[in-house]
Design a protein around this nucleic acid. Structure first.
Lengths: 118, 118
DNA sequence: CCAACATATGAATATATGTTCATATGTTGA
DNA sequence: TCAACATATGAACATATATTCATATGTTGG
């Protein structure tokens, strides 16, 4: 067993700095929405324009149902909003934060190597 | 059935704008690392300082093994780096992008409401 | 080299999650 | 109101993932 290196004082200080557990949970839930190939593709196409469900499904070569399910999750997480237009539903990114997160993630993977600071 | 609203020309244009499928996969994998409560907690404590495995486990009230497994995933994704210091392993965030992504996500959830642009 | 410690890792288990299928809901035009 | 369309949704299934347990690896001091 052994309690590992555990430095009690340091540990307590860290605990004090750790944000509220619920907020960290929400934060994880937020990133989880970006953490699926289908959803990130949806977000990607929505960065260019608003689209209806059928066009998203066609562009991604996926079933309407799968897209709809994922759009529901994105909606519930507040990442996309939708408005009805006749028989179709137009989806769009909810706010600029979504684009910001997408963009910074994109920058990270395209730079693709450690920047060797430190 | 029905092919939904599918506008063929629009769909083709969207497909053309869609980034490489592999890159989107990598992007999803990146965000997936942030999309788990345990890992986001680890990232959170590492934003303040570098820490050894045991202290992270103690601060998070979790088993050493669970933390070690998650640290391995974070390492493999290039989000944290580690260096040995005697018997312990010191972990730190790999680069500033990790902090950036964390911070922007944090801003999003703390503002917690749509900014109503558009 | 050996004992004690710190971390890593493989296997097993439980749970979460994504897609599909079938069908329900809601909208439009005749 | 009815038929055709676009989307939403529940259930079922397959897969992915997180944690635990046991144990292996690697380091230090005697």
């Amino acid at each position: 067993m052994s309690e590992c290196c555990v430095h009690p004082e340091k540990t307590e200080e860290i605990k004090g700095q750790l944000p509220d557990s619920c907020q960290l949970f929400d934060l994880a839930e937020l990133f989880k929405m970006f953490g699926d190939s289908t959803r990130i593709k949806i977000i990607s196409v929505l960065t260019h324009r608003e689209l209806c469900v059928g066009d998203i499904a066609a562009a991604l070569d996926m079933g309407q149902s799968a897209i709809s399910h994922q759009l529901r999750l994105l909606r519930q997480s507040g990442l996309v909003r939708c408005k009805r237009q006749g028989k179709t539903m137009l989806y769009a990114l909810a706010d600029s934060h979504v684009q910001d997160i997408y963009r910074i993630g994109w920058e990270h993977i395209t730079e693709s190597e450690g920047d060797g600071n430190a």
